[in-house]
Design a protein around this nucleic acid. Structure first.
Lengths: 235, 235
DNA sequence: AATCAATGTGTATGAAGTACATATTTATTG
DNA sequence: CAATAAATATGTACTTCATACACATTGATT
């Protein structure tokens, strides 16, 4: 048993209809968005009886002919139409009882998307944005998955320019700061925040100003090209 | 297809003998040790023809009746007899072609063990310690897995007192520093290292000294009880 | 012209990281 | 037993980073 992985193909065939392949593998996507100064997460109503009334993450079983890391891109593309997103693997959850219908191990990914920019078909897919702070109960172990991803996101945003994916291409420093505050759940000092971001050399000054405000407009910035990550994982 | 995870049990039965369960799930353990001022990793000779002469990590298929996170503890216990180790999930690798015998997705864990303390049955299991720096080629994608785990280890040792698991219960600050140097692959300043470690409040002064040295002996320390992590994952 | 509501900016302080040298202890050796 | 060798133990100056905090400026509105 202990050596199963070292067996040759023929031997592997023999054991493949023992219990070894009775574990299904899925991916679940924690898709973060940002609206109304709040961090949101995109959820779907669970149609498992056990979880009636609860929401779950967007997931699907991994197909035998796709890379594990490609599966969440497929899910995201199918659900939202987007294929230029930042997706990161976070953790794999595999407790015996986590799925009521059978043994399903799931690998969790998170993604940050601009809810205004893309053609989200929320109605068609029965998808809904939820304020992360308001989500108290979810189907499966998805609340644990959500919290794990949120924690990882919080740990990353000062190192990597990922939070920018929540915003449109042009944004003011105020908007950027509000995004950071929504993710971290705390207020930040404006001058120190700007100093810190400036030190990262992430921003491109677009020489444009905000418009249609009833007060002094701020300068608009974009994320420098060399820091933009595009999907390369669809196989 | 996209909704497979939301299907009811009966429906799940129906599709369970389509291709969905033709992905096997394994765990692989990157077991780090420390000897002769070098970071080591415990490897086994691959007995796949494709990889003849190469070494691989210790792994096994996940059993249907065990939690994913329990599997590496089982592997480690079976291989080394140890069950009081620190094991941490790092990443899941699932490229289509990563295993020549079929579709196997593997979740990687790392562990740090004291190579002197436990009853390692190296000969019996055909296990060998390799200097991490000398490992240039491995079976499967195991070199990638090793490097991913090493990177994560390096990122963790200043936050979490994990490196201590490489040492025996009593150690001098010099030994501790040498462990850190071996993991990070750089030399550290003695005074600054001690200052940093002292600030963590990890160490218990044992009021003992090194013995059998041909020079001034150092004080011996232990890791404070509240920081010792024991395995709780065997189901 | 005055008011409102925001943007934009700098400095002083404390905390943490880094570079670096000397006195002390033990075992060993002549 | 005195001198030497090889290590331990420790503190300070310097720099870098994080934090706290206030005022002048801009553009729209009245």
């Amino acid at each position: 048993m202990e050596k199963a992985l070292q067996l040759k193909t023929a031997e592997l065939e023999k054991i493949s209809h023992l219990d070894y392949f009775n574990i299904a593998l899925s991916v679940d996507c924690v898709i973060f968005g940002y609206d109304n100064k709040e961090l949101k997460v995109l959820l779907i109503k669970s149609d498992l009886e056990e979880f009636s009334g609860l929401y779950s993450l967007l997931g699907d079983l991994v197909r035998p002919d796709e890379d594990l890391d490609s599966a969440p891109y497929r899910v995201l593309k199918n659900r939202t139409g987007m294929d230029d997103v930042y997706l990161e693997q976070v953790h794999t959850f595999g407790s015996i009882g986590r799925h009521p219908s059978g043994r399903v191990v799931t690998t969790a990914y998170y993604s940050l998307i601009d809810i205004t920019h893309h053609n989200l078909r929320l109605d068609h897919n029965d998808l809904h944005w939820h304020s992360v702070n308001d989500v108290k109960k979810m189907a499966f172990d998805h609340l644990l998955i959500l919290n794990t991803c949120l924690e990882q996101l919080r740990n990353q945003i000062m190192e990597n320019p990922v939070a920018f994916n929540l915003l449109q291409d042009k944004f003011s420093l105020r908007e950027l700061q509000e995004v950071y505050e929504a993710i971290l759940g705390i207020k930040l000092d404006r001058r120190n925040f700007r100093k810190k971001i400036a030190a990262k050399d992430w921003l491109q000054d677009l020489n444009e100003m905000e418009t249609n405000l009833s007060h002094r407009p701020g300068k608009l910035y974009g994320l420098k090209k060399q820091h933009k990550r595009k999907s390369t994982k669809i196989t």
